[in-house]
Amino acid sequence: MQTTFRGNPLHRLKLVLATCLSAAVIFPAIAHEGTHSLAARSGVARGGDFTLESSSGRVALKQFRGKVVVLYFGYTSCPDACPTTLAALGAAMKGFTPAEADQVQPLFITLDPARDDAKHMEEYSRFFYPSMLGLRGTDSQVAAVAKHYGVLFARQKVDSAANYVIDHSSLLYVVGADGKLASSVPYGAPPLEIAAALRAALPRPAK
């Protein structure tokens, strides 16, 4: 399914329908809804500034003004959705020219600060892409940022040696050079689609 950011009204209607359906039906695990603009969604994700902790101190979204920031929320003992998405993001970044890559800052924010310390977040994030920063905060700080971006998550006790898992939505959020939320990329998007969403947000499209 190919979609663009500037969909016509019919297209937009289709996306709204697809979104409604997705809420009602359990999607196959790797369902692919296509990249869509947030305007076509329910509008719960507003984005906004935040300050969290990295292994080398505080990191504020504001400090990346002028760059495109791509955000992902997950946790390092995440069995599947996180490494799958972060690997796809890493592959998208590696496909950029150095000039393009310089203009994009990937951030990985943990939804499990109890188990993810800053050091581990750094190591985990860097594995997927060298400049990716791993961020954490207190439970309430993380919950506040997640809420701004419309991230759904819940700690869930399971009958497993893993003790508990974090159920969570698994989108990538693209924040423009102006700090405003530009678009989101659904789970399962291949690297080329992630790259297209990031390029679309670049202030000066690289030739």
Binding site: S22, A23, I26, F27, P28, A29, A31, C78, P79, D80, A81, L152, F153, A154, Q156, V158, D159, S160, A161, A162, V165, D167, H168, S169, S170, Y187
Partner: peptide
């Protein structure tokens, strides 16, 4: 590994849920 478990991932309520 200490343990090997059989898991699946379901999508429900807009969330990815890992379940044994």
């Amino acid at each position: 590994a200490k343990t090997a478990e059989l898991h699946t991932v379901i999508e429900e309520g807009g969330m990815k849920k890992m379940r044994p």
